[in-house]
Protein backbone atom coordinates (compact mmCIF):
# COMPACT_ATOMS: atom_id res chain seq x y z
CA UNK A 1 0.00 0.00 0.00
CA UNK A 2 2.77 2.38 0.95
CA UNK A 3 4.70 1.92 -2.31
CA UNK A 4 1.55 2.24 -4.42
CA UNK A 5 0.69 5.44 -2.57
CA UNK A 6 4.19 6.74 -3.32
CA UNK A 7 3.74 6.10 -7.04
CA UNK A 8 0.33 7.81 -6.99
CA UNK A 9 1.80 10.86 -5.22
CA UNK A 10 4.80 10.89 -7.59
CA UNK A 11 2.59 10.83 -10.70
CA UNK A 12 0.37 13.59 -9.30
CA UNK A 13 3.41 15.65 -8.39
CA UNK A 14 4.92 15.31 -11.87
CA UNK A 15 1.55 16.14 -13.45
CA UNK A 16 1.25 19.32 -11.35
CA UNK A 17 4.90 20.24 -12.03
CA UNK A 18 4.29 19.94 -15.77
CA UNK A 19 1.24 22.17 -15.40
CA UNK A 20 3.14 24.72 -13.34
CA UNK A 21 5.95 24.98 -15.89
CA UNK A 22 4.12 24.78 -19.20
CA UNK A 23 0.73 26.36 -18.52
CA UNK A 24 0.26 29.58 -20.47
CA UNK A 25 -1.81 31.39 -17.83
CA UNK A 26 -0.04 32.58 -14.69
CA UNK A 27 -3.03 31.80 -12.46
CA UNK A 28 -3.23 28.18 -13.74
CA UNK A 29 0.50 27.85 -13.23
CA UNK A 30 0.11 29.01 -9.63
CA UNK A 31 -2.76 26.60 -9.07
CA UNK A 32 -0.60 23.73 -10.38
CA UNK A 33 2.27 24.84 -8.14
CA UNK A 34 -0.12 24.72 -5.18
CA UNK A 35 -1.05 21.15 -6.14
CA UNK A 36 2.63 20.33 -6.37
CA UNK A 37 3.24 21.75 -2.88
CA UNK A 38 0.40 19.69 -1.43
CA UNK A 39 1.52 16.44 -3.08
CA UNK A 40 5.10 16.99 -1.91
CA UNK A 41 3.73 17.60 1.60
CA UNK A 42 2.06 14.18 1.43
CA UNK A 43 5.33 12.73 0.16
CA UNK A 44 7.20 14.23 3.13
CA UNK A 45 4.70 12.64 5.55
CA UNK A 46 5.09 9.32 3.72
CA UNK A 47 8.89 9.61 4.07
CA UNK A 48 8.52 10.18 7.82
CA UNK A 49 9.22 13.90 7.87
CA UNK A 50 5.89 15.10 9.27
CA UNK A 51 7.28 18.15 11.09
CA UNK A 52 9.01 19.37 7.94
CA UNK A 53 5.84 18.63 5.95
CA UNK A 54 3.74 20.91 8.16
CA UNK A 55 6.28 23.77 8.03
CA UNK A 56 6.70 23.32 4.27
CA UNK A 57 2.95 23.35 3.61
CA UNK A 58 2.29 26.43 5.74
CA UNK A 59 5.15 28.49 4.30
CA UNK A 60 4.60 27.53 0.68
CA UNK A 61 0.80 27.99 0.80
CA UNK A 62 1.50 31.47 2.16
CA UNK A 63 4.03 32.02 -0.63
CA UNK A 64 1.55 30.90 -3.31
CA UNK A 65 -1.03 33.30 -1.83
CA UNK A 66 1.49 36.14 -2.11
CA UNK A 67 2.22 35.14 -5.75
CA UNK A 68 -1.50 35.03 -6.42
CA UNK A 69 -2.11 38.51 -5.04
CA UNK A 70 0.84 39.78 -7.10
CA UNK A 71 -0.64 38.16 -10.22
CA UNK A 72 -3.99 39.85 -9.52
CA UNK A 73 -2.20 43.23 -9.30
CA UNK A 74 -0.94 42.76 -12.87
CA UNK A 75 -4.21 41.52 -14.38
CA UNK A 76 -6.26 43.86 -16.56
CA UNK A 77 -9.29 45.46 -14.87
CA UNK A 78 -12.12 43.18 -16.18
CA UNK A 79 -10.31 40.01 -15.09
CA UNK A 80 -9.40 41.31 -11.65
CA UNK A 81 -12.74 40.63 -9.96
CA UNK A 82 -13.07 37.20 -11.56
CA UNK A 83 -9.65 36.12 -10.37
CA UNK A 84 -10.26 37.54 -6.90
CA UNK A 85 -13.33 35.29 -6.69
CA UNK A 86 -11.27 32.42 -8.12
CA UNK A 87 -8.73 33.00 -5.33
CA UNK A 88 -11.50 32.78 -2.70
CA UNK A 89 -12.82 29.55 -4.25
CA UNK A 90 -9.35 28.01 -4.13
CA UNK A 91 -9.05 29.06 -0.46
CA UNK A 92 -12.35 27.36 0.44
CA UNK A 93 -11.34 24.29 -1.61
CA UNK A 94 -8.03 24.12 0.25
CA UNK A 95 -9.66 24.42 3.67
CA UNK A 96 -12.22 21.72 2.89
CA UNK A 97 -9.64 19.50 1.16
CA UNK A 98 -7.17 19.88 4.04
CA UNK A 99 -9.86 19.05 6.58
CA UNK A 100 -10.98 15.99 4.57
CA UNK A 101 -7.38 14.82 4.22
CA UNK A 102 -6.83 15.24 7.95
CA UNK A 103 -9.91 13.12 8.66
CA UNK A 104 -9.29 10.47 5.98
CA UNK A 105 -5.52 9.92 6.31
CA UNK A 106 -5.70 7.50 9.28
CA UNK A 107 -8.21 5.34 7.36
CA UNK A 108 -5.61 4.65 4.65
CA UNK A 109 -3.88 2.24 7.07
CA UNK A 110 -0.44 3.51 6.07
CA UNK A 111 1.91 3.41 9.11
CA UNK A 112 3.50 6.78 8.28
CA UNK A 113 0.05 8.44 8.28
CA UNK A 114 -1.02 7.14 11.71
CA UNK A 115 -1.45 9.87 14.37
CA UNK A 116 0.93 8.05 16.76
CA UNK A 117 3.70 8.02 14.15
CA UNK A 118 3.12 11.69 13.25
CA UNK A 119 3.18 12.69 16.95
CA UNK A 120 6.05 10.57 18.26
CA UNK A 121 7.79 8.74 15.40
CA UNK A 122 10.88 9.46 13.30
CA UNK A 123 10.66 12.95 11.81
CA UNK A 124 7.97 14.16 14.22
CA UNK A 125 8.17 17.67 15.66
CA UNK A 126 9.42 16.31 19.01
CA UNK A 127 12.16 14.31 17.31
CA UNK A 128 13.22 17.28 15.16
CA UNK A 129 13.38 19.64 18.15
CA UNK A 130 15.36 17.07 20.15
CA UNK A 131 17.88 16.67 17.36
CA UNK A 132 18.22 20.34 16.44
CA UNK A 133 18.40 21.71 19.98
CA UNK A 134 20.31 18.77 21.42
CA UNK A 135 23.72 18.04 19.88
CA UNK A 136 23.48 21.06 17.57
CA UNK A 137 22.82 23.67 20.28
CA UNK A 138 26.24 25.26 19.74
CA UNK A 139 25.33 25.90 16.13
CA UNK A 140 22.16 27.68 17.24
CA UNK A 141 24.11 29.79 19.73
CA UNK A 142 26.54 30.75 16.95
CA UNK A 143 23.63 31.62 14.66
CA UNK A 144 22.04 33.75 17.39
CA UNK A 145 25.33 35.59 17.88
CA UNK A 146 25.51 36.18 14.12
CA UNK A 147 21.96 37.58 14.01
CA UNK A 148 22.71 39.85 16.98
CA UNK A 149 25.89 41.09 15.30
CA UNK A 150 23.90 41.79 12.14
CA UNK A 151 21.19 43.67 14.05
CA UNK A 152 23.81 45.78 15.83
CA UNK A 153 25.62 46.54 12.57
CA UNK A 154 22.48 47.62 10.66
CA UNK A 155 22.06 51.05 12.38
CA UNK A 156 25.77 51.70 11.80
CA UNK A 157 25.38 50.87 8.10
CA UNK A 158 22.28 53.05 7.77
CA UNK A 159 23.95 56.03 9.46
CA UNK A 160 27.09 55.65 7.33
CA UNK A 161 26.85 58.35 4.65
CA UNK A 162 30.14 57.64 2.87
CA UNK A 163 29.80 56.76 -0.81
CA UNK A 164 31.18 53.59 -2.36
CA UNK A 165 34.88 53.92 -3.08
CA UNK A 166 35.16 57.08 -0.98
CA UNK A 167 37.61 56.02 1.72
CA UNK A 168 39.36 59.35 2.22
Amino acid sequence: MRVELFYLIAILCLFFSLGAVFSTKVVTSLFCFLGCVLTVTLLFVLLQASAIAVIYMLLFCLLVSIYWVTAIVFLPKPNKNAYSKHFLHVGVFLLLGGWLLFVLLPFLQVPAFSPAEIDHGFGSARHLVNVLFGPLRHLWYALLALILAFLISVPVLIRDNTKCGDLS
Binding site: A20, V21, S29, F33, V37, Y67, T70
Partner: peptide
Protein backbone atom coordinates in the same frame (compact mmCIF):
# COMPACT_ATOMS: atom_id res chain seq x y z
CA UNK B 1 6.00 34.81 -11.51
CA UNK B 2 6.42 31.55 -13.44
CA UNK B 3 10.19 31.92 -13.06
CA UNK B 4 9.69 32.16 -9.29
CA UNK B 5 7.45 29.06 -9.43
CA UNK B 6 10.20 27.22 -11.37
CA UNK B 7 12.73 28.17 -8.71
CA UNK B 8 10.28 26.83 -6.14
CA UNK B 9 10.21 23.53 -8.07
CA UNK B 10 14.02 23.34 -8.06
CA UNK B 11 14.12 23.86 -4.31
CA UNK B 12 11.30 21.35 -3.83
Amino acid sequence: LTLLVCMGLLIM
